[in-house]
Design a protein around this nucleic acid. Structure first.
Lengths: 146, 146
DNA sequence: TGTATTGATGCATAATTTAGCAGATTTGTT
DNA sequence: AACAAATCTGCTAAATTATGCATCAATACA
């Protein structure tokens, strides 16, 4: 049953992007809800395979989102959405890089993005889409506060 | 004896920058060698206090070096040293940012750095200093390879 | 079809990290 | 100095993650 693996990891991808998963146990339960029954050991191996990383804040992030995470955590100053638009303020000069990272992440809800010098405008598919983009970016932005 | 804490964390700072520490147990032993006797539980708390992070590769990194870690892992293409000079190739346009991050890290061995468009030149205090800079940067650059 | 090989998974367990609690030390106040 | 409050630390247990081993399924091949 080598097929389960693929589907399960695909599910993990979706889950991790939509919810905040903090333990492998959580993931086992989420997977169960989606019809994928497996143990924590298997999830541990999936996480290794997929290169999932645990943010300092404690939630798992996709390997593909790591670049975006770095860019956002380093350069983004503020995030706000209006309707289906997301306005992202960045450090001077870094907007193009941030926009490129957003494009590269191929987020489902993002139709496209354009960058000025210190501002990125991302267009969401809908208001809800824009909200979920803000949510994800904020999740990626969260840094350990000491 | 609240004084121990300060000294111990100072020692941790030195140890983590010079060696590759992969477990808190390792750190306990290193500390013991330096005359700081404590338990793993204490080290765990120190790590939380100091905001130490575990790289995907598995080694702990100082919070202060996290920004540098991000910049290096995202933008640096190649690192090489000649004598006391370290030449760092970066993605086009990102050299100034990388140089700024190096300066901000206040690495002991770095006298200073200057940036072009896609190249940073860092000046070490000595050949050995340059080598240790290369070593640290490579450590920060290391990413999980799947 | 029968058999060997490879990959995936669960179970049990080890390894690692975190947290609760109590005792000791330090600091601050009167 | 005496007492109170705040910190720090070790001990121990809990929580979380990783791993060795055996098994089962799928695939390859004779």
């Amino acid at each position: 049953m080598a097929k389960r693996r693929t589907g399960r990891q695909e599910a993990i991808r979706r889950i991790v992007r939509s919810k905040s998963i903090r333990t492998q146990r959580d993931l086992v339960f989420e997977l169960r809800d989606m019809g994928f029954t497996c143990t924590q050991a298997t999830v541990s191996r999936d996480i290794t395979d997929m290169g999932l990383r645990k943010l300092s804040e404690g939630a798992y992030v996709l390997a593909e989102d790591l670049h975006l995470q770095h860019m956002v955590s380093e350069f983004v100053v503020a995030i706000e959405s209006v309707g289906n638009q997301v306005v992202i303020k960045t450090q001077a000069g870094t907007a193009p890089g941030v926009a490129a990272a957003i494009d590269a992440a191929e987020l489902l809800e993002v139709v496209g993005s354009i960058a000025g010098n210190d501002t990125v405008l991302a267009i969401g598919r809908s208001s809800e889409g824009a909200a979920s983009i803000v949510s994800l970016l904020n999740k990626l932005r969260s840094v350990r506060r000491s």
